[in-house]
């Protein structure tokens, strides 16, 4: 790549992305784009960094520019497909990922990304084929092994999932996603302490890793069920997206108001008042819950000793 985005800084960009420094990666790509605005490669890279920073709208915009500038660039289709998946436009996202694979059919990582896309959309058979193809091309593709573990996990095949995670860990004992996957298996089996160790070990490699942090939160939720309830509710809402949160908020508000009115009108003012107190209790819990829960997680995080090179 030409000046000023030298090979060194491109390498730095990927390292920033790998270590979760999404803001640094965005700034690297932005600086390079200021000098080279017509590079599809740079727009694709910026799109991937924006996706990692959970800015799907901007990522989609950048990936669309990249595709327009360089329609034959697999990275542009990869970024576009992932951005569409993040926006829950699943069919279009998968079509873009399939296009990326068609442009570079011998690239294991693209098959793996396509498999991950199928996994998100719960198309298990297609996910299995794509991930197996990724492994055929590159038998050392550890991410594909972990994805196969995730696939088995989602299908309820716990033993097979663990086998894949352990296979990846045998090749790379500090593989982040494999550690997190195995930690999840252990947590479900009730081995809370070992699950926590896996989360802490993963965080030693990569202090910002979302999967490891989520695992640590799940461990904390298992240890204190009352405060953990807030975490479970929050996770459930996040999985359902903004629509679910909105429906629950408005629905809860309506239910509270209507039940108060109905009970009072029906001659049960005490019950109406109890509903009011229940609402206040819920409000207090949702105020205190996150604060208390974060304190618990912070106590665990204080034990993490990040690797020197990180």
């Amino acid at each position: 790549m030409s000046d000023p985005f030298t090979h060194w800084s491109e390498e730095r960009f990927w390292r920033q992305l790998e270590y979760g420094d999404t803001q640094g990666a965005i700034e690297s790509a932005r600086t390079a784009l200021a000098a080279e605005p017509d590079s599809g490669q740079l727009h694709s890279m910026l799109a991937l960094a924006l996706l990692a920073a959970k800015r799907p709208y901007a990522a989609r915009h950048e990936a669309a520019i990249a595709r327009e500038l360089e329609p034959e660039l697999p990275l542009a289709h990869l970024a576009f497909g992932n951005a569409l998946l993040a926006a829950r436009r699943f069919n279009e996202g998968l079509a873009a990922l399939e296009q990326a694979v068609a442009l570079a059919p011998q690239t294991s990582e693209l098959h793996e990304a396509l498999g991950a896309g199928y996994l998100v959309t719960r198309r298990f058979e297609q996910a299995h084929s794509a991930l197996q193809r990724a492994l055929e091309i590159d038998p050392e593709n550890l991410d594909a092994m972990v994805r196969l573990g995730d696939l088995a996990w989602q299908q309820g095949q716990r033993v097979e999932a663990e086998a894949w995670y352990l296979r990846a860990l045998a090749s790379a004992p500090a593989h982040l996603n494999a550690l997190v996957g195995q930690g999840r298996v252990l947590l479900e089996r009730g081995e809370v302490e070992r699950a926590r160790d896996h989360a802490l070990w993963a965080l030693q490699q990569h202090a910002n890793d979302e999967g490891a942090l989520l695992l640590l939160c799940a461990v904390a939720a298992r240890r204190n069920r009352v405060m953990g309830l807030w975490w479970r509710l929050n996770s459930w809402l996040t999985l359902g997206g903004q629509r679910r949160t909105l429906m629950l908020l408005i629905g809860g508000y309506l239910l509270f108001n209507l039940s108060s009115l109905l009970l009072t009108d029906s001659g049960y003012p005490a019950a109406g008042s109890a509903v009011g107190w229940l609402w206040i209790g819920l409000a207090l819990y949702s105020w205190i819950g996150p604060f208390w829960f974060l304190k618990m997680v912070e106590r665990e995080l204080a034990r993490v000793e990040v690797k020197a090179e990180y």
């Binding site: 700034e27 932005r30 600086t31 901007a58």
Partner: peptide, 11 residues
């Protein structure tokens, strides 16, 4: 510190 290229979702 923001560089010269502007990203669409930035305020």
């Amino acid at each position: 510190m923001r560089g010269g290229y502007s990203i669409i979702d930035e305020p």
